[in-house]
Amino acid sequence: MILLTIFLVGPIISSFYGSLTNASLSGAAAQNSSFVGFDNYAALFADPDFPKSVILTLVFLVASAIVGQNVLGLGLAILMRSSSRMVRSLVGTFVVTAWVLPEIVAAFAAYAFFNETGTLNNMLSAVGIDGPNWLYALPLLSVSLANIWRGTAFSMLIYAAALQDVPTEITESAEVDGARGWQRLLFITIPMIRRSISTNLMLTTLQTLSVFTLIFVMTGGGPGTDSSTLPVLAYQEAFQFGQLGFGTAIATVMLVVGALFSIAYIRVLKPEVD
């Protein structure tokens, strides 16, 4: 409890306070930070990088977590049920390895894959397409794909477990009644695993919201700020430009967003705690 209070609650409080000061890494303000009220927030909303970063974060969230990881994870879990044993274990091995690897290693592998002279462009040129320099031309697409590559395993495992709990009698009787494959999926399987879906949506969203290493290693938030999601922007402002107060304000905004998602997540899980 003490640990939790010092290290989790403490930073949250100091985050709110810090975001109200002009603290910086160096110079006079580093010694005596003064209370500047909501100036940091005013500056935040005036800074063109901030709204841009919010939009980038949203696109990144929707593309890689909500759509990418969930749809691909569910798709893989469903397909795995009607595939042969060998293929299943092969899929499991590679998809899960990408997930188990330490963040930084995964980030390097993805960096190499999307690099101008990397695997992807090499393959494209083999079929006659001159691939772009992914990390510079399409940074957000690259990091989103990388995040899908890295995160899908989690959704896949959750959905595979959920699908196992769907009683086969129901889908079979629907089949007898003449429901097609996609109808069974849409009207029976998905409604039956909707709790897993909502839980998983929450968890992947929260995880993706705090993705830093992947983006930081692959593009460094660049070129310019074209792939600076909120965590990367907070880091850049605080440690590269020394605007600790400004970075803290971004962090606070993220904490609030995270807290909202977290509360929604608890509401989903509520029946289990009660």
Binding site: L8, P11, S15, G18, G258
Partner: peptide, 14 residues
């Protein structure tokens, strides 16, 4: 559920 990444700047200050 809290994004730990978001906290690193204030944690650094602490």
């Amino acid at each position: 559920g809290l994004p730990i990444t978001a906290m690193m700047v204030p944690v650094y200050a602490v």
